[in-house]
Amino acid sequence: MARIITITSGKGGVGKTTTTANLGTALAMQGAKVAVIDADIGLRNLDVVMGLENRIVYDLVDVVEGRARLRQALIKDKRLPELCLMPAAQTRDKDAVSPAQMIDLTNQLRQEFDYVLIDSPAGIEGGFRNAIAGADEVVIVTTPEVSAVRDADRIVGLVEAAEKGPPSLIVNRIKPRLVNRGEMLSVDDVLELLAIQLIGIVPDDETIVTSTNRGEAVVYDQNSLAGRAFLNIARRITGENVPFMAITDQQSMFERLFGMFGRRRS
């Protein structure tokens, strides 16, 4: 029986899709059977992030409306046979699916997988409601910015109102240098404001950009800090007790020394 976990955020562009793709990949690397669902109907993206855009035949709406069977719409990952993607429809909108249909869909997937991750659309309207309808748990992604944190707090309220249990939090795109200078909200600041359980800290990392360009998950990259952070989150999801990465300045002493002089210019 699968655990159904929705990844959501309120604000757009904070890294929901990247998080879903990487957590799905990381869980499958650990040997779990995983389905990732793109619930952002009309703004399909999880497929391109995972590099599976050329394999789509049927989508979520086709399944819901009975034009395709569940298995037909599930696309196998390129590398991991136990990882599947259910793409969103691109030519329809959020109203093409109802919360009841989402619950039905997730219940069907529940039989065949260990984890079902749902990539939620931004916002607090119908698309978000669909995305959390079938969820057992909700993970909220935020960045350490005022707009993202405010929207995350709205989502916390809505998730609690939907009786999904307390959501957990991923703080994405932390810039240690700015945090050290007191110019970016720290993870502790964000936690104090939102008062929910932390499940991951992901440092800002350029390898996200390059791996996404290629349609590859960053968790394959041993040298990527963000990749390691996502692997850690996946282990925490499975119940392992993994200490949080120390988000310190990753610069070398040399760079740091240089930075002291460089700061004058900036």
Binding site: V146, R150, D153, L178, G182, L185, D189, E192, L193
Partner: peptide, 19 residues
């Protein structure tokens, strides 16, 4: 003052007002 501290104080107010 540090902008993170300013952000935190502003958010502390706005979040509870929102709620």
């Amino acid at each position: 003052g540090r902008s993170a501290q300013v952000a935190k104080e502003r958010l502390a107010t706005v979040l509870v007002d929102d709620r």
